[in-house]
Computed example of a mutant assay.
Amino acid sequence: MSQEPKRMFMDQEKNLYLPKVSVLISACNRPHMLKQALESVLAQTYPNIEIIIGDNSTDNGVEALVEPYLRDYDHIKYVRNVETGRNSFDLGNTLTLFSMATGEFVNFLHDYDFFHREKIEKMVHYFLRLPNVKLVTSYRQVVDDDGNELPPVVSTSKLLYKDSLINGKELGKHMLSQFTNSIGGCTTVLFKKSDLQEGWARYGGFHHVVLSDVATWMSLLSQGDAVYIAEPLSYVRIHLEDRMNTADLELGRVAEWASILLSSFENQFIEMAEYQGYLKQWNERWNSRMHELIASENHSFILQGVRKKCLRLLEDIPQIYSL
């Protein structure tokens, strides 16, 4: 990295008409991967970007890596969030980053993922062309620890084979029918900050922890359309997320899908017949976990608002089988 004195990243005249994009990087104990993530943002062809790094590590490795970048690039900000917790599903670090973003558009980036160099430019292009678009996503390429490409897993399979404008409700219903985040995680999606009227990870009036991205996408899709770009514009290490999966997180995932499903019915995103069909699928898929959901009052990954939604949904299950 250049050791020149701190320089302005943006030429003011060049960026006068380009909306600012905030890239928010949540970092935790992986400085070797964070370097690749950060460099992929610095290499973007889109010029008007701010970078904010939120660090909730247990050591000083991330801070040491970031320090020389802070000297050389004045569009990079760094905040240490040790008080928000130290797990990759921590909501506090994410909410801190979101509150600090000053860009019109926001794209999160996990420290273990990285961007294609044209990602932001191509995604902003669709927002500027299509006024009713609320999120832009793309195919995401799975990679290993060394960045080598791997075959897709079920959740990262290609949604479409050409760039497409998709009705927001239809895409949301597709996710509900599969109980799968086919849109992509935080790294993959660009959205307008002002469109998140409830805030990050909120849907139906409640925060979600394990499915914070799904809750956010459903909130956006309830307001308008989505664009899917068929080429890979983000590179993700899915297996790292798999290593984090525990019985607790699985239970949280089950409860939050229930909350999202019920909220989608309550806010008229889906009709009664659709709700009943999705509810049957949810019940048949996770019936064996119901007793744990009912007894999960002190469960660390299930917030009380989500638990109440889940219990409401459980009350509806006997009724759909009596129809």
Rank of each mutant, 00 (worst) to 15 (best):
D72P: 03
H75C: 07
Y69M: 08
T102V: 06
D111G: 02
T102P: 02
S99W: 05
G61P: 04
S99M: 13
L91T: 12
V62L: 06
D55M: 02
K77P: 00
P68F: 08
N107Q: 15
E104A: 13
A64R: 12
K119G: 01
V62R: 02
T102Q: 12
L91N: 10
R71W: 10
L109Q: 04
L70E: 04
N93R: 12
H116G: 04
Y112G: 05
F98R: 03
N81S: 13
L97P: 02
H116F: 07
V106L: 07
Y78F: 12
G103D: 10
G92H: 04
N87S: 12
V106R: 05
R86C: 14
F105T: 10
Y78T: 03
F98C: 02
T94G: 04
G103N: 13
A101Q: 00
V82C: 05
D59F: 04
R80E: 09
E121D: 12
H116R: 10
F108V: 07
H110A: 14
H110T: 14
V82W: 03
L97F: 03
I76W: 01
L95T: 09
T96V: 15
T94L: 13
E118W: 07
V79P: 01
R86I: 07
S57F: 00
D111N: 10
V82R: 12
V79F: 11
S57K: 04
V82G: 11
S99C: 10
D90A: 15
N56D: 10
F98T: 11
N107G: 04
T58P: 01
G92E: 04
H110W: 14
M100W: 05
N87P: 01
S57Q: 05
N87C: 08
K77C: 08
V82Q: 12
F114H: 12
L97V: 09
L95R: 14
T102C: 06
T102Y: 00
R80H: 06
F114G: 04
T58D: 11
D90F: 04
K77W: 06
F108Q: 04
Y73F: 15
R117Q: 13
D72W: 13
E121K: 14
Y69I: 11
G61N: 03
N56W: 02
T94W: 05
T102E: 14
Y78I: 02
L109M: 09
E118L: 08
T102L: 08
S88G: 12
T58W: 01
M100S: 08
D90V: 13
A64D: 13
H110K: 14
V82T: 11
K77L: 11
L65E: 00
D74C: 14
D111L: 06
D113Y: 00
I120A: 06
K77D: 06
H75W: 03
G103S: 09
E63C: 09
F98Y: 11
F89Y: 07
L91R: 07
H75Q: 10
V62F: 02
F98W: 09
R71K: 15
E104G: 08
D74A: 12
F108W: 08
R80N: 10
F98K: 01
A101H: 00
R86L: 07
L95P: 00
S57A: 07
M100E: 11
G85A: 03
N87W: 05
